[in-house]
Design a protein around this nucleic acid. Structure first.
Lengths: 120, 120
DNA sequence: CGGCATCCCGTCGGATACTG
DNA sequence: CAGTATCCGACGGGATGCCG
């Protein structure tokens, strides 16, 4: 891994903003679950709700709006009868997978390290 | 980047836990700032507080305790007179920089993409 | 120096019911 | 189907003051 962007001493404002953008999407109870539900195929409101266990329509609606505002998700309205509404990830939205993977790799290693400390 | 751990369809429970560990540290107003303040050298309570603009002792105390519980930070007490207390990152804590860098890279690219969409 | 105790408020998110 | 409206508790986090 090359030099750190965020080293606690110098960190350009642009990087802070970029970090906040990422945190804005990763933080909260539902956003990552919603993104992940859309990774392999576009889905309708109710399908997302069924896929994510426990989310209420209120939260799903709110989160989808925020994700759309932040350029993570696109809401598509197909003017058929009856109207069909689908949600799709933007390219940025799809790339969130890389962030998630890095987090998981860190977490796996962290758990391994922590257990080793406890044992030996 | 190789295959995704978190693909929205299959994701082992172990990976979910690892992800939650990472989210636990990245979420919230202060944790990443505290971690970053300790990246290059260990620091004392008041030094961290001075370095991070605006954090109150109440929050710093609370966050440091959580970080210690989660194996991100170690609290060292040197039995000199007067007593010296220092905080140090664990190896896992230091590796958080990789997670942060990935987030920043995603955020930078996301902003570029979003601007391009608006322009063209 | 390195905190803790108390008060306070805004936001997150759940429950439930309702609508075009 | 794709949401909206209303109510409510829990928690994050700020402000202030005090302590060994």
């Amino acid at each position: 891994m090359e030099k750190p962007y965020f080293n606690g001493i110098e960190c350009p404002h642009e990087y802070i903003l970029a970090l906040k953008d990422a945190l804005n999407v990763t933080t909260g109870k539902w956003k990552l679950a919603i993104v992940s539900s859309l990774l392999w195929e576009n889905k309708r409101f109710t399908d997302i709700q069924k896929m994510i266990n426990g989310i209420t329509p209120r939260m799903l609606s709110k989160e989808l709006k925020e994700l759309e505002l932040n350029g993570i998700v696109v809401r598509r309205v197909y003017d058929s009868t009856p109207v069909l509404i689908e949600y799709e990830l933007t390219p940025s939205g799809r790339k969130l997978n890389e962030v998630i993977n890095t987090m998981i790799e860190w977490g796996l290693n962290h758990r391994k390290q922590t257990v080793e400390e406890l044992v030996g």
